[in-house]
Amino acid sequence: MYHELNDMIVADKLTKTFGDFTAVDAISFEVKKGEIFGFLGANGAGKSTAMRMLCGLLQPSSGSARVAGHDITRQSEKIKQTIGYMSQKFSLYEDLTVKENMRLYGGIYGMNLTAIKAKTASIASALHLQEELDTLVGSLPLGWKQKLAFSVAMFHSPPLVFLDEPTGGVDPVTRREFWELIYAAAHEGTTVFVTTHYMDEAEYCDRVCIMVDGKIQALDKPGALRQMYNTNSIEGVFLQLARTAKRMAD
């Protein structure tokens, strides 16, 4: 019980098998409230499967997990209402304007119009988007889209947000501005669960977890991991671990 007060995510031997293939192999970990938790792994290591289970999109084969206090097997609907989610692939409707997108997401999460208006105004001023509220999202530069997508994922002020490769292909300046949004959110108490292929971004996380072949092979503060594997970057840690992988296909 004590755990649930401080831990946003508690996974206990979480497992997912597809036929005779074990995509996620009994992983156990906790994510603390307000933490930026980096979730790394090679393609096919089981990252996406684990993340989908935690978001309540996929039922585990065995084991259990609680996300924001809700059980992922029995209370997946509650989880979906509680969390925020953003991925590189799908985030905003390109053929709706900035304002319409916010209105839509606010509506989906059951916010009333006054709250939506207030939040829209505050996001617009934070991202300097006041002039662009009636612009179609499709015609915004990529960097803005990604920052906007993050703000929309945070629209209903979720205590926990999942970010799936949020910065792919984004220019270096925007990538950093994006991370500053993450820092700010974490500073205000939001828990951030993030996957990335940029190893320098792993360094920004409070703790980093590296998956290999469906198992968690390393989980600690970036500094501790660097020390443990005697290398000067998380990339070095990742490469050492990834070399031990047996699994080839997704």
Partner: peptide, 10 residues
């Protein structure tokens, strides 16, 4: 190398 993990990129 877009969307590919560090190991495969290397």
């Amino acid at each position: 190398t877009t969307g590919v993990d560090v190991m495969s990129r290397k």
